[in-house]
Design a binder for these strands. Structure first.
Lengths: 180, 180
DNA sequence: TATAATTTTCAGAAATTACTGTAAATTCAG
DNA sequence: CTGAATTTACAGTAATTTCTGAAAATTATA
């Protein structure tokens, strides 16, 4: 499979960004080509399009599956496995949010919780635990919030995001609203 | 400087998480020790506490500065440079949000914008541009939103985050509120 | 301005992470 | 059940990233 210049340039960009996104170069490139191609793709096509080994594609697909970023499809009469990305970009964004929370927040939350259960050995520890408590509470709030977003429909999410500067006003009015 | 068992264990954890957070192990450890220690720390103390070379600390501090995560302090009568983290964890969280946006979103937004300006060579390109447009619009919304958060006080942020399931209700009522 | 203290830079070394080819495992049609 | 097609695992290699020590640059004091 040959990529058009347009796709090619974005594939390269996603590759460069890959590592910043907690993936890696190949994973970024693979996802770009899957997202930007209308047809479902199989491993050989991806391997050819990105000029990487078949086995590398296999590992990458495994990883993308573990992120829930791709969907497996079977094409009648073909034994190969084909993959697509969700059609709705909001779906993709929500998945990324959830998966990153799992990887970036959850383990730390556990670790902070453990630290709070220790009895402080001295004043330094007391100070540390104070800060740990603050971090813990903040992260817990973010976790609850992200679960909330996760369960929100794309249209509602879109409303929320487009609120812009209306947000502050709404917050000021919130008590009044919630009483009803 | 010797770390207590409590601090030590969290330093190790932050080290492990470092790379997931777009930093790296050393940066994570350095930030943990700075955040958890009440007193401002100088490079030698950090170097000793984490058992890493003085030059590595220097590079790490440079990076943390570029992230706006630490504040330089001078102690009267001491020529060394001392560093602390912001006292308010919300401040830290906001900074992380902003800096990650700069690194993870902004470059891609530019790249997507460029891609939209190209004229599509064929139907595949047309499809690709459609998806690119969706990604672009989504990322732009997230950008605006994050700017909004950035300018919000900690207390308002806290209100927003603790809303929990009240969020949906509020969104339903938003039109009514914003009219006033 | 000279010198001592401190920080920064940077080339090479060490450690980590990613990639490939081969071989093993799995799946499926007949 | 057999064997061809396909996917996966994994050891070794390649590439990248991180870390160190030494030297250069900067800063502050006398």
């Amino acid at each position: 499979m040959k990529l058009t210049a347009l796709t090619q340039s974005l594939v390269l960009h996603f590759g460069e960004m890959g590592s910043r996104w907690g993936l890696n170069r190949t994973l970024g490139q693979m996802y770009a080509v899957i997202v930007l191609t209308e047809q479902p793709l199989n491993a050989d096509q991806i391997s050819e399009a990105l000029q990487i080994s078949r086995s590398n594609v296999s590992m990458g697909l495994k990883e993308l599956k573990s992120w829930n970023l791709i969907k497996l499809q079977h094409i009648p009469g073909d034994r190969k496995e084909y993959f697509t990305a969700p059609e709705d970009v909001w779906e993709i964004a929500k998945t990324l949010l959830v998966e990153r929370r799992k990887r970036e927040l959850d383990p730390t939350l556990t670790s902070l919780r453990d630290a709070l259960l220790q009895s402080p050995a001295n004043d330094d520890d007391k100070y540390a635990q104070q800060r740990i408590k603050e971090m813990h509470d903040l992260m817990e709030m973010i976790t609850v919030w992200s679960t909330e977003l996760q369960n929100m429909s794309s249209s509602k999410l879109s409303t929320l995001l487009t609120l812009g500067s209306g947000l502050s006003k709404i917050l000021d009015a919130k008590d009044r609203i919630l009483k009803k």
